[in-house]
Amino acid sequence: MREVAFIKQNKDKWLDFEKSIFGKELKNPDELASLYTHLVNDLSYAQTYYPKSKTILYLNNLAAKAFQKIYKTKRQDKNRFIYFFKTEIPQIMFEYRRYVLYAFLIFGVFVGIGALSSAYDDSYVRLVLGDNYVNTTLENIKDGDPVAIYKSGSNWGSFIGITLKNLRVCVANVVTGVFAGFGTGYIMMENGLMVGSFQYMFQKEDVLWESVRGIWIHGAMEIFAIVISGSAGFIIGASILFPKTYSRITSFKTGLKTGVKILMSLFPFFICAGFLEGYITRYSNTMPNWLSVGIILITLSIISYYYIIYPHIVNNKQQNNQLNAVI
């Protein structure tokens, strides 16, 4: 059977199933389970005869969402908090993994632009970071403590202030996604240019290593969280620009809900980054290299595992559960 005929033959059934799953009026569980079985069979057929078709992607996404809705256990319902972090967010991150890639690429490009601009224009660092910050940092470098600016204020005050600051940046990243993603792109540009010019300033003063072993104790998790929030903003923007088979308003509501969920999942990492900056970074110049580097690698590994590696593990487990449910 030609793919066009296959789609034409089953299109109404797929759309009916999609409305039943995501609409307000749900069919009874037995009927939904039966439709789900037919959907998985159609997916298997498409994978066999149309291996490079976009139909497979559509059916696979629909089957994954349907499985989550139909076969979610009572235990998951009772432990909603655990389910949110253990299953729901990883599923979202896997489904929208390309937006995470886009966010990292965009941020990385602007980091490079910030560093290159600083290398070719001495005034660029001051333009981005401000004269007061640059002058203070240069004085600290002369005094032999490049990251002394992170030692000002009390531990508790710094912890709360930095946590709230990071939260504001990430909320702005998500909220400005409603401007078709361009608002998020602008915030990512600002932060990328800032990081690039900031690190080049230390490189120029021959204290790059001292800055890395100090600032990135909290910066590894902080910057990663900002990029993840950027991907959430891009998801919202894409839901407006590319509604696919949904109405634009339905697509936007789904994208907004997804973006907010990703933002909520970042809260523990905001708190952790704020704690590290308020209580640990200020002691970076007195701790051994192995300890500061160890903290950086551990924090980076935890957040990258959760948002990049773990979603693939959850997806593979879910696919196995789908096959077992059908069998």
Rank of each mutant, 00 (worst) to 15 (best):
P268E: 08
R80M: 13
W209C: 03
V40R: 01
I249L: 09
Q76F: 04
S152V: 14
F275V: 03
E18I: 08
Y120H: 08
N166Q: 10
L43I: 06
A238S: 14
P288T: 10
K72M: 02
L35H: 12
E88M: 00
A238V: 07
I226N: 10
Q76D: 04
M194R: 14
S292F: 02
S158C: 10
L164C: 09
I249M: 02
E205V: 06
I106T: 07
I308A: 04
S152M: 15
S211M: 15
H218P: 02
I89N: 03
N132C: 00
N285H: 15
A172L: 13
K78S: 12
I249D: 09
S118T: 11
R75F: 04
T281Y: 02
I82K: 03
T286Q: 14
I223K: 02
I141W: 14
N315T: 05
Q318H: 06
I262P: 00
T299A: 00
A220Y: 05
V100G: 06
A225G: 04
G255H: 00
E88K: 02
Y120Q: 05
V326C: 08
E190D: 15
Q9R: 14
M194D: 01
A148R: 15
L15M: 09
E25W: 11
T73K: 04
D122K: 13
V260A: 07
N132H: 13
F252P: 01
I56G: 07
M188L: 15
K165N: 14
H38G: 13
A66E: 06
I162Y: 09
N135K: 11
R168V: 01
V314C: 03
K19I: 10
R282K: 15
F67A: 03
M194H: 05
T258C: 03
Q91V: 00
G108Y: 10
K27E: 14
M287P: 08
L57M: 11
F84K: 02
T254Y: 06
F202E: 12
L127K: 05
T37A: 12
E3R: 09
G181T: 07
K165A: 10
S247L: 08
S251H: 09
L105T: 10
E95N: 09
E139W: 07
V169K: 08
L276R: 06
S53R: 10
K317I: 11
L167W: 12
K72A: 00
N289A: 14
N155M: 14
K74H: 13
G255N: 00
K204R: 13
M287R: 09
A63G: 07
M264R: 07
I249Y: 04
Y83T: 06
R80G: 07
T245Y: 13
V111Y: 05
D206K: 11
K253L: 04
S118H: 07
F94T: 01
V100L: 15
V174F: 10
I240C: 04
K74Q: 15
E190I: 09
I92M: 05
F159Q: 01
P146G: 08
G255W: 00
I280F: 11
Y186A: 12
I295R: 05
M221R: 00
F234C: 05
L15K: 10
F107H: 12
A66I: 00
I217E: 00
V227R: 00
